[in-house]
Design a binder for these strands. Structure first.
Lengths: 239, 239
DNA sequence: CGACCTGTTGATGTCCCTCAAAGGGGGTGG
DNA sequence: CCACCCCCTTTGAGGGACATCAACAGGTCG
């Protein structure tokens, strides 16, 4: 099991301070690790999970599938995200969680969740806070799928992703590691693969994304296109 | 202040059992009521709220606004829903919450939230659970906006709404009270008003919605169109 | 060297948007 | 009690953004 003490994640600017006593508590609370290869599934839609996780390394995504075979990428999974809590609380997973690159996640057992709420109200509060952050983000996604054009969606998404990755140190020199396929981005934005490709080409003066490397050249232009102001992500707790 | 003892909401089938001690605790925890007229705003996007609420009577919605004036209805507010918790936790409201009919909400003060987590782990757990249910729903909305056609979206939404309203007793004889405008549904589905109207007309054999009354004649056909199975909503806690 | 996957580009079609205008109610004032 | 207005709904016509179909190029792996 990877040691908590040397985990660099909690020192990233994205997260609110993580005290020594927090560290001690979470060390006790944690029940293991999970490692995934690219393409491996953490859990499937409908599964009744016994665990939830926080992503430590690597990236993945949540997918929802329709009866006709279409799929929607609901949410990316980046380091620091909590995965599977929804599944655990409502009884069945709403999404399929898949790794897009090798991943490492810290695992927590369902049965310890009640103890968390009983013994450590601050951490429980943090958990709810994380859930609220998630809600905020899903709401924004709904707004972009409902109201924005293809180019606007893409500018919004790439900006958002780049900012999020930067905030956990995954964009050294402004180049973010983003190990997905155009197919994935298409499914995230609700666009066809072909149109995703063409829209990417149109934005090429301002962003570039190939071989898993996401370069953002002009945040301001992208933000203008996306009809959004690119603010730094709000600080939030890490579990 | 409306008395908790006679509140009929907690006896509805949608909610998991609400014990006498829960009742006693929430009575203490509650800090007041809010009543809204149709069209009144509970809070605006960007507000820093001091309160959060659970909707008791009436209906409303969460909106997000884009720089160009477009708006997206992110989520409806039905009796039993928690409102404003996200705003409170992340510091600023992500959405504008507006009443579509006269509403009554139970109000809770921000400062009491820490006490809730400290003194009543079960209720805190319930709160997080509610948040997870919300996430589940937002994820489904993302999938429909991203993948479904106009008719599919509408069938999905009307079915969902009807089911949700039935579960809190707002659809006597199968006729649900749904006090919104076509403009609102259009903004919820990411469609133009005109096309919303035309799509409603197409579905008229199976659903009807006028004068705030939503009739569902054939759930199965609607579910087929929507590419979904219409299950009863999962039981969940009430705050 | 062939099979496969991902990315790229062109041609054609269609779903939905935009523009435009008319038909109910319900409310207010003359 | 009728005239007028405003809000919401409904319907038609035309155009555009994006989907679908099709084909090819490059890279990787057997």
């Amino acid at each position: 099991m990877h040691p908590c003490e040397t985990c660099a994640l909690r020192k990233k600017e994205l997260f609110s301070p993580f005290s020594e006593s927090d560290l001690k508590f979470m060390k006790e609370f944690r029940t293991g690790d999970v490692t995934l290869q690219a393409g491996e599934i953490l859990h499937n839609e409908g599964d009744e999970n016994a665990f939830f996780y926080t992503a430590k390394e690597g990236q993945g995504a949540h997918f929802k599938h329709l009866a006709n075979g279409d799929r929607q990428l609901v949410n990316f999974i980046f380091p620091g995200d909590v995965v599977g809590l929804q599944a655990l609380l409502s009884g069945a997973a709403a999404t399929t969680a898949i790794a897009a690159s090798p991943m490492l996640l810290c695992r927590f057992h369902k049965h310890k969740l009640a103890a968390l709420f009983r013994d450590n109200p601050e951490r429980a509060y943090a958990l709810t806070w994380i859930s609220a952050v998630e809600q905020h983000f899903l709401g924004e996604t709904i707004a972009t799928l409902g109201q924005r054009s293809a180019a606007q969606r893409m500018a919004w998404a790439l900006l958002k992703i780049h900012t999020r990755l930067s905030a956990v140190g995954l964009a050294p020199n402004g180049v973010a590691a983003f190990p997905f396929k155009q197919r994935d981005l298409a499914d995230a934005l609700g666009l066809s693969l072909v149109h995703t490709n063409k829209t990417l080409a149109k934005l090429r003066p301002y962003v570039t994304w190939d071989h898993g490397e996401l370069h953002v050249f002009d945040k301001n232009v992208l933000a203008d296109i996306a009809l959004t102001d690119h603010e730094a992500p709000q600080r939030r707790p890490l579990l």
